[in-house]
Design a binder for these strands. Structure first.
Lengths: 346, 346
DNA sequence: TGGAATCGAGAAAGCGCTTTCTGACGACTC
DNA sequence: GAGTCGTCAGAAAGCGCTTTCTCGATTCCA
């Protein structure tokens, strides 16, 4: 057998002794074709293991069945959960998902959008906090705008409003405020927050919400109660260590890590330093990624409907933009008190 | 401004007052072009926010810059870690990754390969245990074979040898055997194994390795010491509960869950039943996914170089098949004893 | 200064498919 | 039985790009 490049529709047509057009019609069910011809074409296609060239189909004005999803880190359970939701909806709609991780590099994010644009992806989904940065925003808009003008759909999860796109927005502020109130309700008065870089809108919102929640009870969150760190497990770990190193005596009774992933790192750091959670110190996270219920102690957090976040974003993109105003779907979180928080003993 | 479809190379060429060919050459740097023309083309392209149509490029015999990665579940940390490795290498090589989750549905897996074939993906990576099923294997081969004949690269992580493809194979058997020996070394004599479905080759290998390792020390793993369950966190949870329910008295002193994810579920189940790990019972997993070091107690496991698994698989695919024989890269694991295992007290 | 050799730009031929547009052919109507 | 539709298969025109192939304009050597 010779090494031939690819089986084409023409091969199928020739083998079935019909025209290209007829073969195409049979394979797509576009128009009615006499039964015997239809039969011959199907048989030939199967025989030759024909797979249509998706590029040619796309070029010929056919379908664009792929959607691009851009997130910061595929390995992060938060994104993984959202991506799961996206994929379910995508699969249900016969769409292929291209998942890209930017490793939090703004330039790479813009580059990916550009590539997706070149692929004529049916939709682009931006998952995760935007960078609050004018230059980045401009660059992003410069890619997104022509993409949409060309008929592309764009939707985002948890994004900056600077980009005028359809968004599924978890209620970061409200959730954090509710959490703050719940923690104050447990009797806590001295707090510390492990925050990610303030460039990220999610960080800013959760911080603000938490601060507001405390303020309602007359508690002020001072700037030096906030430890800024990387938005990762290791970031949480480091920040907790720094927190302890800095103030061995006037330790807070409760620590709020702005994401569960960071809380997990912090939990380990606290344990390593010989502190018992929640006896010596309480800790709470945000997101309710699947694994936190399996921790010991199980983590108090704000439950976000992660999969739904992804599903709704995909929905938004599929349904297409109706009006000209960007739509926003708000999804609220729910405080889940678990064993990592308790009444303070100090 | 009118809603126009897309900026094409022709638009750019016209705007720059050069021919299509010249514009193409400038944008690809294919051949030398007079400086002023080059300048004009670049300017026009930027001005119009031109993005080449990747489909047209692919069709015209240009580049195929996308690779497909198929795994069981994107949300599973094991796959996420491997995918991270794949993505790093892919990005370094200017490739786009399309990640697909099959949710352990064999048919969907085959369907994805078919789609990827249609996309003329540069490579297809199969991540995770194969289904040990003749019909599935045949269907898979029927897709893969024409794909490779057409120049496609295929590589796998942790797969069945039935499919004759390049493979990165973690040493499941050896790792499990080493783990068994280490556990026996701690003094354990009565074991139980939480296993996934035996359809999956990974399960079979780890089970066999563990059994062999025990056998070397004269310990026999009986069939009813093995609890078969779903290959997930919940599977581990359920299996552990069943284990306890079944034999409140002659409890094993050590439980081996064939994956960390399952071990995590089991850990929670054990805790819920009031058993202390490792005082009442020891537990070990396999894979060393990132989160297990943050558990309390931290999980004993077999460390697999997960990211490297992905990297090597991508390497294999990029380097292309040299000879006709499928290549196999073997990566060994390393037993990591942590706090979830201790000398048995019973 | 003439002719060969060189260089670079444009014309045009596909890549594999979808989709009008055409044109047979048989089934109708009056 | 002549004329009119309605069907359905085939011919052909792109979709947007890359890449020969071609040919005019330079440059260089004799």
């Amino acid at each position: 057998m010779k090494a031939r490049p690819h089986v084409t529709l023409e091969d199928v047509a020739r083998s079935a002794n019909v025209s290209l057009a007829t073969a195409s019609r049979v394979l797509n069910g576009t128009a009615s074709v006499r039964a015997d011809l239809r039969e011959r074409v199907s048989a030939a296609a199967a025989e030759l293991a024909y797979a249509p060239n998706a590029h040619a189909q796309a070029l010929a004005g056919g379908t664009h069945r792929t959607v691009g999803v851009i997130c910061h880190d595929v390995g992060d359970p938060y994104f993984a959960a959202i991506a799961g939701g996206v994929m379910r909806v995508a699969t249900d709609n016969g769409l292929l998902v291209m998942l890209a991780g930017t490793f939090r590099d703004p330039d790479r994010e813009v580059a990916y959008v550009s590539t997706l644009r070149a692929q004529r992806a049916a939709a682009i989904l931006l998952i995760g906090s935007a960078f609050e940065d004018r230059a980045w925003e401009r660059a992003m808009a410069a890619e997104l705008e022509p993409y949409r003008r060309g008929g592309g759909q764009v939707a985002a999860v948890s994004r900056h409003r600077g980009l005028k796109i359809d968004t599924v927005q978890p209620d970061n502020k409200g959730g954090a405020a509710a959490l703050a109130k719940a923690l104050v309700g447990l009797g806590h008065k001295r707090f510390a927050v492990l925050a990610g870089p303030r460039q990220l809108s999610t960080v800013v919102d959760r911080l603000a919400g938490f601060s507001d929640g405390l303020a309602e009870h007359g508690i002020t969150l001072h700037e030096d109660d906030v430890v800024e760190t990387a938005f990762t497990r290791d970031g949480g770990y480091d920040a907790a260590k720094r927190l302890l190193a800095g103030r061995k005596r006037k330790l807070p009774t409760c620590v709020f890590a702005v994401t569960d992933v960071m809380a997990i790192g912090a939990l380990t750091a606290l344990r390593e330093e010989g502190l018992s959670v929640p006896d010596d110190i309480s800790i709470a996270g945000f997101d309710d990624i699947p694994v936190v219920r399996d921790l010991a102690p199980a983590l108090t957090t704000v439950r976000l409907p992660l999969e739904e976040l992804g599903e709704r974003a995909m929905d938004l993109a599929i349904k297409g933009a109706g009006g000209t105003r960007p739509r926003t779907v708000r999804l609220s979180g729910e405080v889940v008190l678990r064993e990592s928080t308790a009444r303070p003993k100090r």
